[in-house]
């Protein structure tokens, strides 16, 4: 095994081009587990922690360009207004120690369906900024980024530099079910974002299908229900039947499996409950005129 320590982004891209099997390592919260447990022996480890720009972010008018290695702890602390859904998701990640190291780039690179960031990214709307020495930068919409269980759209010579996430234009919510009250891998997770500017609702589902997914049929149903009823203008309470239908469609969007963490039936059921609750919380917040709401944690 070789340990590569590029001092700059350009060096990192060059190293990845030269050693396409090199495994990028930043927070180490996935890679080191695999190495410690002898599940993986990469030819090269490509350490990205010396590249300062990866832990920085820029807030633009429409989006936040979030460096791939910005730790979850900082997202929680500093980006609650701009990225409320992701900030909530960040708070559910493992433990304080892990949140100090792990970042969204790692979640995307691993592309586990259980990655905590994915539902929030899907709901907010995001593009993955991938780059290679040979072909430069390309933006991959997060909806098409996940290509299979632990597979993503990256080419072997590409690295994730940043994620461009739409700034919240309305309330966002995030809930995750685990069988423990902290430090737990998702049995399933649900992200929801209201986008009053486009009068749309977007969703993200984690751990309930081979990849993170959006509940598109549910979104379409709710978008038209809200549009037709003039709810965006009136801010009225959404009819329970519509909420229920939305939840049912979200559950139907799942394609889960039975595994040690939960049954498929439970995952589908829980996604329905989370869809209903997160919609209620977010809509309540929208009605109240708050841009952001979350539990007092």
């Amino acid at each position: 095994m070789e340990f590569l320590r590029p001092a700059s982004w350009q060096e990192a891209l060059a190293a990845k081009a030269e050693h396409p099997t090199a495994v990028p390592i930043a927070g180490g919260t996935d890679v080191m587990v695999e190495i410690n447990f002898d599940h993986r022996r990469p030819t090269h480890l490509l350490d990205l922690t010396r590249i300062g720009e990866l832990t920085e972010w820029e807030t633009g008018t429409d989006s936040v360009r979030l460096g791939a290695s910005v730790p979850y702890a900082r997202i929680m602390r500093h980006l609650r207004a701009e990225l409320p859904g992701l900030a909530l998701a960040a708070h559910t990640v493992a433990s304080p120690q892990i949140r100090n190291r792990g970042g969204v780039g790692g979640n995307l690179g691993t592309a586990s369906p259980a990655g905590d960031a994915h539902p929030a990214l899907l709901a907010a709307g995001a593009e993955v900024e991938a780059e290679s020495a040979a072909r430069g930068t390309r933006l991959i919409p997060v909806d098409t980024f996940y290509t299979g269980v632990k597979r993503n759209a990256l080419e072997p010579d590409e690295l994730i530099r940043a994620v461009r996430i739409a700034r919240a234009d309305g309330p966002q919510q995030y809930s995750k079910v685990g069988t423990r009250n902290a430090m737990v891998i998702a049995v399933c997770a649900f992200g929801l974002a209201l986008h009053p500017e486009t009068r749309t609702v977007r969703t993200g589902i984690g751990s309930a299908a081979p990849t993170p997914i959006r509940a598109e049929v549910a979104e379409q149903f709710l978008n038209s229900a809200l549009e037709e009823g003039g709810f965006w203008e009136s801010g009225q309470i959404i009819a329970p039947s519509a909420v229920k239908q939305f939840a049912t469609l979200c559950a139907a969007a799942c394609n889960p499996i039975d595994d040690v963490r939960g049954t498929a039936g439970y995952r589908r059921h829980a996604i329905g409950v989370l869809a209903r609750r997160t919609l209620m919380w977010a809509w309540e917040s929208y009605r109240g005129g708050h841009r952001v709401t979350e539990g007092a944690a």
Binding site: H91, S175, K176, V177, N181, A182, L274, R277, G295
Partner: peptide, 9 residues
Amino acid sequence: PGGLCNTTH
């Protein structure tokens, strides 16, 4: 119940 995972208020 659910703790930090924000499943219920």
